[in-house]
Design a protein around this nucleic acid. Structure first.
Length: 103
DNA sequence: GTTGTGACTACCA
DNA sequence: ATGGTAGCCACAA
């Protein structure tokens, strides 16, 4: 396998997260077949172009928090994108038991 | 080669 | 709950 095929696997799985659902970095890594690459999933999201169509905002930390510092501009942007599709925040985080994507 | 750096995570005090 | 840590691994310098 090549280096970018992993990146493409990650893109594919992120693209597959249904609206109103969320996944974790570790979950995407496992689905892509590289369970130890949660960090790389984050790196891949960071490197997406600003105009990407990928639903990067549906990817969260394993505890349901966003990866950005609370109340930062990026944090607020991601929060509203999620709220737009009815993902509700409670105490600065999403309840994975309510919203996590499971196949 | 090596080193430092993360949109990470599981564990443990 | 919460703060620290060790493991993780692609990537850039």
């Amino acid at each position: 396998m090549t280096a970018d095929s992993l990146k493409e696997e990650i893109w594919q799985w992120v693209a597959a997260i249904p609206p109103g659902k969320v996944a974790t970095y570790g979950q995407i890594a496992r689905l892509a077949g590289y369970p130890s690459h949660a960090r790389y999933v984050g790196t891949t999201m960071k490197n997406l172009p600003p105009d990407t169509v990928l639903p990067w905002f549906r990817v969260l930390r394993s505890n349901g928090e966003l990866a950005f510092p609370v109340a930062s501009p990026a944090w607020q942007r991601q929060k509203s994108l999620l709220e737009n599709e009815h993902v509700i925040f409670r105490n600065f985080r999403v309840s994975l038991s309510d919203y996590q994507w499971d196949l």
